[in-house]
Design a protein around this nucleic acid. Structure first.
Lengths: 216, 216
DNA sequence: TTTGAGTGATTGTCAGACTATCCGATTAAC
DNA sequence: GTTAATCGGATAGTCTGACAATCACTCAAA
């Protein structure tokens, strides 16, 4: 009914009892199905009120994807390469579409990294910078994929990053500014290449420290 | 228990009745939870036998992702740009890692496209070619993401492709061979650029025909 | 007009029963 | 001795009925 556009966002669906009668199944079986739509974020059930169609927010799927990834034994290197794919494209699009607010967010993150040298705060700013790039791309699919990947990679990256020497972190920062420069000057090829160079370099410096697989 | 590695793939989990007792919930409530793990492909329940932990295959998630995408109203252009991200990276990796079997699969798809000119068969070979690239990358995350995207985009691409003139399809085919050349000669930058050129060109020629959003 | 109780509807949860199916052991037939 | 048939136990799949918690709404009283 949702796919056929007989139901739209915000609309309330029939109660469990009536829906079970309509579909010719018991309430138990119906509830098992509704629960699936619930965890997918497609519906939202409220006790005493009813159940409504929700605009699915991919953020809600992160936990599920994490479970699947852990169960499937995803390779860390595979994840990192996928991140590279997403972020290069995002930087290219960001160079074309970024807003003033996006630029401010990126600049703030970079200056934070320039100033504070505590490993933890630095890693946090690093994360914010990369996220700002993806947001600036104004592409919801890229944002979704990036949030999946970040969720799985972040812990490991934060861990390995803290073991790197200062000269490597300085080089990281120079590369960050190069990315920023490419995006602000609206140069897609330059921004894309800068991201690829940065992530390739980072993988060289951190990759050997990674666990091969996440979970299992 | 799965995340903490107390359970591993292939292992059988306690029966629903015993598990419900252990966790202190009713069988109905437990089943709602197990059903979620089931559709995620994390467990597999067989009547009369029991339930085992399964190595989650992302292929099983395609239907779910389609539902979420429809419910969330994903933009077709966003999807296509994400596809570009994935496939460029995949081609670069394919240039480094492809096997003889991969090359054969790609070559077969291209020759099929050279020969048969029926729109439908041509589109099918096109699909197979692009899929072979991603498979050659030997990256499970890219494969997963590509299968999500393909599932959502294919119908629309197949539709718009059938309306294109012969000279455009010929140009497509030349670009395909350029991609193939880059991969076979183990030239990552060349292969990546060839893919990007191809997909950018295809988007120029087909994009204006697309519906803006999928579903809703 | 506002407050309060009451009422019906709805989701969340539980308990119990029955069916279909599978696995393994036991038994019967050859 | 080997094979086939049968039976029982265990398990997932389904259904029914019940109760609790919560919410929205109505309506009467202050």
């Amino acid at each position: 009914m949702l796919v056929n556009e007989q139901l739209s966002v915000g609309q309330r669906i029939p109660s469990e009892i009536r829906l079970a009668e309509t579909l010719g199944v018991s309430r138990s079986s119906l509830r098992e199905a509704l629960r699936i739509l619930d965890v997918l974020g497609i519906i939202e059930a409220k006790t005493g009120e009813g159940t409504v169609i929700r605009k699915a927010d991919p953020e809600n799927l992160k936990n599920l994807m994490t479970l699947v990834a852990v169960s499937g034994g995803i390779d860390t290197v595979d994840l990192y390469e996928a991140r590279c794919a997403i972020e290069v494209q995002a930087a290219m699009l960001a160079a074309l579409r970024h807003s003033d607010e996006d630029v401010r967010a990126m600049e703030r993150a970079l200056k934070d990294m320039d100033e504070c040298r505590s490993a933890d705060a630095s890693a946090q700013s690093d994360y914010l910078f990369h996220r700002a790039i993806v947001r600036a791309s104004q592409n919801d699919v890229l944002k979704m994929m990036m949030s999946f990947i970040s969720d799985l990679l972040d812990e490991q990256i934060r861990d390995t990053r803290s073991r790197l020497g200062l000269e490597i972190l300085d080089r990281f920062q120079k590369q960050h500014w190069a990315i920023f420069e490419g995006i602000v000057s609206r140069n897609p090829e330059g921004a894309g290449k800068a991201v690829r160079d940065h992530l390739t370099y980072a993988q060289e410096k951190m990759g050997f420290l990674w666990k091969r697989r996440i979970g299992r």
